[in-house]
Design a protein around this nucleic acid. Structure first.
Ligand SMILES: [Zn+2]
Ligand SMILES: [Zn+2]
Ligand SMILES: [Zn+2]
Ligand SMILES: [Zn+2]
Lengths: 128, 128
DNA sequence: AGCGTTTTGACAATCATTCTCATTCTGCTG
DNA sequence: CAGCAGAATGAGAATGATTGTCAAAACGCT
């Protein structure tokens, strides 16, 4: 069931658009940006491409408070995000502390096959 | 803008329904349960009540992978959740380790007014 | 160029959530 | 108890993101 992937103009357009910003962006917004910049890409294709990328782990996804999915091209490897509520500026953070803590807590309660989600929100220096 | 609250039959029905399960439940599911148990409560009211409770911090909210909001009556105070993917069993967890870590990371990057979300998912012992 | 497969896109269909607003409660007041 | 102003309710419409449909277009390969 290996997802055979064939490269297309539309897919690279979406990836380029994603790469052009450091903020988390929604599928709708990406689609709007693409239209403005002249790229003709269908909305459904934007969704499909983002889903694939997310499944492959090539982009990070998280949900806004309203439940909308937002995407961001990130460095590889497990990490978390420190996001500014005001301007959206995002800093990737990582560290063994949380990883160890979550693993310990899960083990302590007999849970296996553990994963976790963690996001930190705040107001960055510039926006304060 | 203090949300003046007036107690009603519908609201307590929703709260009772929430209290009758230890798992995270969606507004839609709660509404269905209420109908089955004979309680006549409008869907809009279920949503309104849950929103109020969530805003007041009387229930915890989180989003499923599909973006649906799910609610749970929890103990008071800041804590996190260890949720079983298979059966939904939820354990509340807390500890100063993560709190300190997130605060430190945020401070290190000049962020203020910090908050965070953290959920741990896994397979509990019974479901393994 | 020809062919089987994959991808695309316009549009319809879902589905959770919110909005509207007329009607029904609730807590007082006299 | 009757009356009132404000709050809450509910049925249904409206919204908005996401997904499904399916014929047409694009690919990779021979
Ligand atoms: Zn990331
Ligand atoms: Zn982590
Ligand atoms: Zn909780
Ligand atoms: Zn915490």
């Amino acid at each position: 069931m290996t997802t055979t992937r064939r490269p297309t103009r539309q897919q690279s357009a979406v990836m380029d658009a994603l790469g052009s910003t450091r903020d988390f962006t929604s599928a709708q917004d990406l689609h709007a940006q693409l239209r403005e910049s002249g790229e003709k890409v269908g909305l459904a294709t934007v969704y499909r491409t983002l889903s694939s990328l997310a499944d492959a782990g090539d982009v990070d996804v998280l949900r806004t408070g309203e439940g909308e999915a937002v995407y961001r091209k990130c460095s590889t490897g497990h990490h978390h995000h420190l996001v500014c509520r005001a301007c959206g500026r995002t800093v990737e953070v990582e560290g063994p502390t949380v990883e160890r803590w979550t693993d310990a807590v899960a083990a302590e309660h007999g849970f296996s096959d553990v994963a976790h989600t963690l996001e930190i929100f705040g107001t960055c220096g510039s926006c304060h």
